[in-house]
């Protein structure tokens, strides 16, 4: 079984700076991705803007705090709030990260790395299955950028990601920039990473910018997508075909037009490689 999602086109992450454009209808994109936790609130402007965005285009809920890899129990309140938000917004899908971010009831508000072990696979896959059961839908899990790995890992990251997705029967949100950043930081082959993933589980692609700190790359989402990541995106498209693609930009967020220009660049690459006609843009793959 696979977990391909409907093809939504080339979207952008919706951030506070662009709320006015959403509100007056001038900010348009194929689709929007929002950080789920920012909208798990009672009311006010953020939710009103989100509903306006949803009226314009499909919306995907992308979480950062599900903490799928944590040794703590799943947070029931969090899942209930997420389910309530999903019922209100009717997102195209829901995603979160293959990582942990909380332990002992404390939240780091970061995407922390897991050891690539059988213990972690069994643990995370079981939790993804529970989450999917509670939410009543398949989710996508995203590979994270990392700055350390563990000596007791028994397999490469791509094998870990593929195995969790397969056992949990969930989709993969492939962050091409994260693959590039981690490949640089840990010295593995980014192309091999992509080639080893199960194509029928790739439901979405993330593209973003990062920063070079000399000794390591940092996943900062504060710059345009760099040439090397665009190149890796080409590889991903050739391997996985047409996949909904999103530009993430979280810090030093540019004007909306610049975001859209990045999304259009992704679209142009897709057309060039896959010869997709304009009319086919919103078709849903079999």
């Amino acid at each position: 079984m696979g977990c391909r999602m409907p093809f939504l086109g080339h979207g952008v992450g919706l951030r506070t700076k662009h709320y006015p454009g959403i509100w007056d209808g001038t900010a348009r994109a194929d689709w929007f991705e929002v950080i789920s936790e920012n909208f798990m609130i009672p009311g006010g402007r953020p939710l009103a803007v989100l509903e306006r965005a949803r009226a314009i285009a499909p919306v995907v809920l992308h979480g950062v705090s599900m903490s799928l890899g944590s040794a703590d129990p799943l947070n029931d309140d969090y899942l209930l709030e997420l389910k309530t938000l999903a019922a209100r917004i009717e997102p195209a899908w829901i995603s979160d990260h293959l990582c942990w971010g909380s332990i002992g009831g404390h939240y780091a508000h970061d995407l922390l790395p897991l050891p690539f072990t059988e213990e972690a696979i069994a643990h995370v896959a079981e939790r993804v299955r529970i989450v999917q059961d509670r939410l009543g839908r398949k989710i996508l899990i995203e590979n994270v950028s990392s700055y350390l790995t563990f000596t007791h890992s028994t397999m490469p990251e791509w094998q870990f990601l593929a195995e969790v997705a397969t056992r949990a029967d969930c989709g993969i949100l492939l962050d091409v920039n994260n693959v590039y950043v981690s490949a640089h930081n840990h010295g593995f082959d980014a192309g091999m990473y992509l080639a080893e993933l199960p194509p029928d589980r790739i439901g979405q692609i993330h593209l973003a910018g990062h920063s070079d700190h000399g000794t390591h790359l940092l996943d900062t989402h504060d710059a345009p997508v760099c040439a090397a990541v665009w190149k890796l995106y080409r590889t991903a498209l050739l391997l996985f075909g047409r996949v909904s693609t999103l530009i993430e930009w979280d810090d030093q967020v540019p004007e909306f037009d610049e975001l859209i220009a990045e999304a259009e660049r992704a679209r142009a690459i897709e057309r060039e490689l896959l010869e997709v006609s304009l009319d086919d843009r919103h078709a849903v793959p079999a």
Binding site: D110, Y147, L148, T149, F150, T151, G187, T215, H216
Partner: peptide, 22 residues
């Protein structure tokens, strides 16, 4: 003991990246 060292960063420096981000 369980953080892999890989030049140019040792284990302590790699943990420090996460501490700094936190």
């Amino acid at each position: 003991r369980v953080v892999r060292e890989r030049p140019p960063l040792d284990a302590r420096a790699r943990i420090a990246i996460y501490r700094g981000m936190y």
